[in-house]
Nucleic acid binder design. Structure first.
Length: 463
RNA sequence: GUCCCUAUCGUCUAGAGGCCUAGGACAAUACCCUUUCACGGUAUGAACCGGGGUUCGAAUCCCCGUGGGGACGCCA
């Protein structure tokens, strides 16, 4: 049997971190088993679905590198098929017309809630042998309801949560087609999963409650029931549920924030899934190791600090040319003139070990492109008269250096330190402030070398 | 309210009845490295939600609480 998984978002917003992890796990499972990963857009909510959201989801998946093998399929383009199945069900008695109005339904629900009962359809239009149905009212377009089994249980072995069973008595006859004839979510999913030959449904655990309904419809259709794996949700950094109002951002925001996609992927893979003590692994390893047995059943809290750490690890490993490209993109985006900069590739080497994200890397490269001036506060603190005097001496000594390489530059600094009878930081810190606009940097002699003689002398001149 | 899911350090997790004096990672703290800030290294503190069972033996199995989450739409 070929494994076929799917990711089926509704295009009502961007791809957020929870959706991304669901997609990642579905993708990985298909890849692991040499199967197919299908992208399906569930756009039957016409009012809220937008083409922009479809694009945003695809952009997010592209950034992460989660490629699909089939699709995107759009549910709105499959209307004829859904209607065909509904007609079949109406004909064979597994579905029926219901003429209850929304007002009547609201009244029914209010009554049930008042009695502290679970709100549900009472089956007044459900045909039973020997039962007298109400008179069909005039002027009402009926909905179509699924005739759910009245007794027994529906159970499945969830690949994450274990055996789950629900009594059919908990389930009511849910609507599969609205009064205007359009099919509803729980029905479309079933027809799609069936038609598309989905073998493993990997989705968020907010769908656990839909699963028994879907299994019952599948059974009514005579379709094979796929395996289900319900992933727990991801909570925000503060343990609160992620929502549009609270903390949920597009995965592409992580790009803007300077994260490498492989760091986000590694983090997401590790959030709710584990392979022993392994923390840092490539997507190749992940695909090789991924299984449904080691997925955590409970919700996981997002931890930005750990993501930051992973990102730093991936930046250290990353190719310099790639990092430079990312940094330039960011600097240019800020309007920084990068055209006159030299040795930027070497500056990357100086900083890639120390930064947490690409934006920090870009900031670090900024003074290697154009002069960056320290704030008045920093200047006042570090550029004292004594410091300026020392820098004047240093300038002379640097001027005399013939071969502009770190050991020679270091010697010039040491000479200055000795001449003024001060400690190293008394020279190195003000020097950093003048050259880079801030008091911290990598090894100062390296910085001097990479900055180049012309740039260093010009900036010392400008004190 | 009813139904469903869930519960190990602050966080992500390892853990399939004896390997657990509960392991790893992030974070924290201390020290080392260092001309600064980082990086890196070393070390330390930090958890099995509570109560009952089952068993020679329970973090692991069962039950009951409690906490957390989800669902109960002509949304998906």
């Amino acid at each position: 049997m070929t494994v076929r998984t799917r990711f089926a978002p509704s295009p009502t917003g961007f791809l957020h971190i929870g959706g991304a992890r669901t997609a990642l796990f579905s993708w990985a499972y298909a890849r692991r088993h040499g199967g197919q990963f299908i992208l399906r857009i569930e756009d039957t909510d016409v009012a809220r679905s937008t083409p922009e959201a479809v694009q945003a989801i695809i952009d997010g998946m592209n950034w992460l590198g989660l490629s699909h093998d089939e699709g995107p399929f759009y549910q709105m383009q499959r209307m004829d098929r859904y209607k065909e199945v509904i007609q079949q069900m109406l004909a064979n008695g597994t579905a029926y017309y219901c003429y209850t109005s929304k007002e009547e339904l609201d009244a029914l629900r209010a009554k049930q809630e008042a009695k502290k009962e679970k709100p549900r359809y009472d089956g007044r239009w459900r045909p039973e042998s020997g039962k007298q149905l109400p008179v069909i009212p005039a002027g009402i377009d009926p909905v179509v309801r699924f005739k759910n089994p009245a007794t027994g249980i529906v159970a499945w072995h969830d690949q994450v949560k274990g055996r789950i069973e629900i009594s059919n008595e908990e389930l009511d006859d849910f609507i599969i087609a609205r009064a205007d004839g359009t099919p509803t979510y729980n029905f479309c999913v079933v027809v799609d999963d069936w038609d598309m030959g989905i073998t493993h449904v990997i989705r968020g655990d907010d769908h656990v409650n839909n699963t028994p309904r879907q299994i019952n419809v599948l059974a009514a259709l005579g379709a094979t029931v796929p395996l289900y794996a319900h992933l727990s949700m991801i909570l925000g950094d503060d343990g609160q549920k992620l929502s549009k109002r609270h903390g949920a951002v597009s995965v592409t925001q992580y790009d803007d924030d300077g994260y490498l996609p492989e760091a986000v992927l590694n983090y997401l893979a590790r959030l709710g899934w584990s392979h022993g003590d392994d923390e840092l692994f490539s997507m190749e390893q992940f695909v090789q190791w991924f299984d449904l047995d080691h997925i955590t059943a409970s919700a996981a809290q997002f931890n930005t600090e750990k993501l930051n750490w992973l990102n730093a690890q991936y930046i250290k490993q990353a190719d310099n040319a790639r990092l430079l490209n990312e940094a330039l993109k960011r600097l240019n985006g800020q309007g920084v003139d990068t055209s006159k900069a030299q040795n930027l590739d070497r500056a990357i080497g100086l900083y890639k070990e120390r930064v947490t994200n690409l934006n920090e890397l870009a900031d670090a490269l900024h003074p290697f492109c154009v002069a960056v001036h320290a704030t008045e506060e920093v200047k006042a603190q570090h550029l004292t008269d004594a410091a300026k005097a020392a820098l004047a001496t240093l300038k002379e000594k640097l001027d005399a250096v013939t071969d502009w390489i770190a050991p020679n530059l270091n010697a010039a600094i040491k000479d200055t330190v000795a001449a003024h009878g001060v400690k190293m930081p008394a020279v190195a810190i003000p020097l950093r402030v003048v050259l880079l606009g801030q008091p911290q940097s990598p090894s100062i002699d390296q910085v001097l070398e990479v900055l180049g003689r012309e740039c260093v002398m010009a900036r010392l001149q400008a004190i």
